[in-house]
C-alpha cells in the first residue's frame, strides 16, 4: 500500500471519492498544526529580533527606563537549579522504588501512580494559589524564591517520575540478573548497573522539566512574586523570565521589550526541546 505511486492513488480516489476526501482532510490538519507553529516562531522572531538591541535590555541592573531582562534571566537559572535540586532526587528515587523494589500489585504503588497522575493534571494557577496559601499566608514567608522553587518542584515531580520510570523499565532484565549473578546486592545493582544505563532517558526527562520551569508563570506570580532583582537570599522575592514577560505585558507600555523577551524564551524552549530529543535519540541508538 505504501509504495503505490501518485497516479495509482488518483485512480483509486476516482473510484472512491470518500477516500480522497479523507486523505485530503488528514493532510490539511497536519499542515495546519505545523503551519501554526512555523508562523508563530517566524512572527515572534521577525518582530522580536530587531528589539534585542534596545539599549540596556541586558543591563545588569533593572530600572523602569531599561526594563532589563538580565536579572530575570539570572533568576530563571537560580529557580531552575533549586527546583531541580529538590525534584530530581525525589523523582528518581520514587521511580527506583516503583520499578526496582515494589512488588506487583502493591497498594502503595497504585496510590503513588494515581497521585502522580493527579499532580500532572493540576493547572499551574492552582499550584500557584496552593503555594500562596501555604507559604505566603500560613507560613508568613511572603513572596520568596524558596516558595516558588518548592511549588515548581512539586509541579515537575510527576514528569521526572514518569520519564525515569520509563527509562528504568527500558533497561533489560539481563543486566540486573547478571549483576545479581555476580553477587551484587540490590542497591549496588541499582546504582552501578541500572541507573547508569538509564541516564540518557532520565536526562531527557530532566531537560523537559527545565522547559516547564522556564515557561512557567502562573505558578510563580503568587509564590515568588515579581521583584526584578537578583535575590540575595532564599527568602527574597524574584521574577523569572516568563514572569518578567507577564509583568511587561500587564504594564502595557513595553511591547517591544515583551517581543524581545518572547524571542529569548522561544529560543531557549526550542533549544531545550532539541536537546531533549537529541539525548533521547542517543538512548535509542545505544541499545
Amino acid at each position: 500500500m505504501a509504495n503505490r505511486n501518485f497516479r495509482q492513488r488518483l485512480k483509486e480516489y476516482k473510484r472512491s471519492p470518500l477516500s480522497g476526501l479523507l486523505f485530503l482532510l488528514v493532510c490539511i490538519s497536519a499542515f495546519i498544526a505545523v503551519a501554526v507553529l512555523i508562523f508563530l516562531i517566524i512572527y515572534i522572531l521577525y518582530h522580536g529580533i530587531p528589539n534585542l538591541t534596545l539599549p540596556g535590555l541586558f543591563a545588569w541592573e533593572y530600572n523602569s527606563e531599561n526594563v532589563s531582562m538580565m536579572p530575570a534571566i539570572i533568576n530563571t537559572v537560580i529557580m531552575t537549579a533549586l527546583s531541580l535540586a529538590m525534584a530530581v532526587p525525589l523523582g528518581v528515587f520514587s521511580a527506583i522504588y516503583l520499578v526496582e523494589y515494589a512488588k506487583r500489585g502493591n497498594r502503595l504503588v497504585k496510590l503513588v501512580r494515581i497521585t502522580a497522575e493527579t499532580l500532572s493534571g493540576i493547572p499551574s494557577i492552582v499550584y500557584g494559589l496552593f503555594g500562596y496559601v501555604l507559604f505566603v499566608i500560613t507560613l508568613h514567608w511572603g513572596y520568596t524564591l524558596l516558595s516558588g522553587a518548592i511549588t515548581l518542584a512539586i509541579m515537575i515531580l510527576p514528569l521526572i517520575m514518569r520519564t525515569t520510570e520509563e527509562a528504568l523499565i527500558a533497561v533489560p532484565d539481563s543486566f540486573r540478573e547478571g549483576s545479581f549473578g555476580l553477587g551484587a546486592g540490590r542497591l549496588r545493582t541499582v546504582f552501578r548497573i541500572v541507573l547508569p544505563s538509564a541516564v540518557p532517558g532520565i536526562l531527557a526527562g530532566v531537560i523537559l522539566a527545565i522547559g516547564r520551569i522556564v515557561g512557567e508563570s502562573a505558578a510563580l506570580i503568587f509564590t515568588a512574586g515579581t521583584n526584578p532583582v537578583v535575590p540575595d537570599s532564599l527568602f527574597a522575592s524574584t521574577r523569572t523570565l516568563s514572569v518578567h514577560m507577564y509583568a511587561l505585558m500587564s504594564e502595557g507600555l513595553y511591547t517591544e521589550q515583551a517581543f524581545a523577551t518572547a524571542v529569548v524564551l522561544l529560543v531557549v524552549v526550542i533549544f531545550i526541546n532539541a536537546l531533549s530529543g537529541f539525548v533521547a535519540k542517543r538512548l535509542a541508538t545505544d541499545k
Binding site: L37, G211, V214, G215, E216, S217, M245, L265, L266
Partner: peptide, 8 residues
C-alpha cells in the same frame, strides 16, 4: 508546540 510557554 507543547513546549512553548503559555505566556508566549
Amino acid at each position: 508546540l507543547a513546549g512553548i510557554p503559555s505566556i508566549v
